[in-house]
Design a binder for these strands. Structure first.
Lengths: 182, 182
DNA sequence: ACCGTAACTGTCCGATCGGTCAGAACTGAC
DNA sequence: GTCAGTTCTGACCGATCGGACAGTTACGGT
């Protein structure tokens, strides 16, 4: 054995992401991951300080991408704000499908996770989707788009090919937000 | 102690629903429920054959209500079908908020649950929301409404008062489905 | 060839899980 | 008061969890 450390870490993350996205974080034991990787459970804990750290490392890119999206639309307003946010959000969920899947599998415990501030990022996303409006219709519609894209992306790809899925999700989301295309 | 059996069962179900909806099924131990009820863990297992049976009993009313909805719209077509389905679905998720919450907390393990065929009911709902269409745009939009109402109802009630939430969810959902009000 | 270090593992640990069981505690009918 | 039956509990069980740790193996620089 004794592969390079970074290669081993990569394999662990790959197996963990697959198993977490199927069985959830709690539903996947360190032994499950170790068996999938083909190493001992102790080896996992040599490369990662704990089970939680694996999760953190898996979700950090998603979190960063979301933060980057919010930063990108921070200066926009009106129709441009909504359009850019919707497209960015749809692309993000399609790119990080399995991460999204495991994210809403254990969403309640994520909220009290120290290293992951997904919830406040979700708040920012909600705000942008609502076009910075605080009126109830806009807020409700924003919540609905948040959940709609979330679940549709996380669903097993039986729905439609990715290209079609992407286009239709964007169109549907803009309809939900009562956005008249510019 | 020694309350009546039915009263005790009711208290257990009440506590279990609250704890399950917050921490999930796996995240709630029998000891947690027992402590909340104020009895011993063994007492729970006297009234219920196992932890799973508590879950089954909690979700059966939701399942029945969904089946009843599908039965009710089975004969409809076109605009009436979509309208009735959306309104019925929104009302259902608002009525069974906490059940919905715990349902999508552990949705992957639900799919292989023997006593609960939620997944095939969800398929029926999807079909009705899509207006029985098999075209990709309609299917994607149906998926999105499914997830949107799901999550918006499950979200903690910070969004809007229930009456406003209901009306806006219905309007937004119909927009998502590109439904022109009759 | 040697050796320090990085990579890895077998084994053990305490905690907690769902569930079992014999028996105590309570209840209502008589 | 007595007693049968329902309700309830403490103690215990095997399984499994995340994690700790000493010891072993493999590798690269010298």
């Amino acid at each position: 054995m004794a592969r390079s450390a970074s290669a081993m870490r990569g394999q662990i993350l790959k197996s963990a992401l697959r198993l977490f996205s199927v069985h959830g974080f709690r539903g996947t034991s360190l032994q499950d991951i170790a068996s999938d990787v083909g190493c001992s459970k102790a080896s996992l804990l040599y490369h990662f300080a704990g089970k939680e750290k694996i999760l953190t490392e898996l979700l950090t890119p998603t979190q960063d991408a979301l933060a980057e999206l919010l930063d990108r639309v921070a200066g926009l307003t009106g129709g441009r704000l909504v359009e850019e946010t919707v497209v960015g959000y749809v692309d993000l969920t399609l790119r990080f499908r399995r991460e999204i899947r495991l994210l809403f599998e254990d969403i309640t415990e994520m909220s009290c996770h120290q290293d992951l501030n997904v919830m406040e990022l979700a708040d920012g996303l909600l705000d942008a989707l609502a076009g910075r409006s605080h009126r109830a219709p806009a807020r409700v519609a924003a919540w609905m788009v948040l959940g709609a894209v979330f679940i549709t992306s996380a669903a097993d790809g039986e729905v439609a090919p990715d290209e079609v899925l992407r286009a239709e999700m964007i169109r549907s989301a803009l309809r939900t937000l009562d956005h008249t295309p510019s």
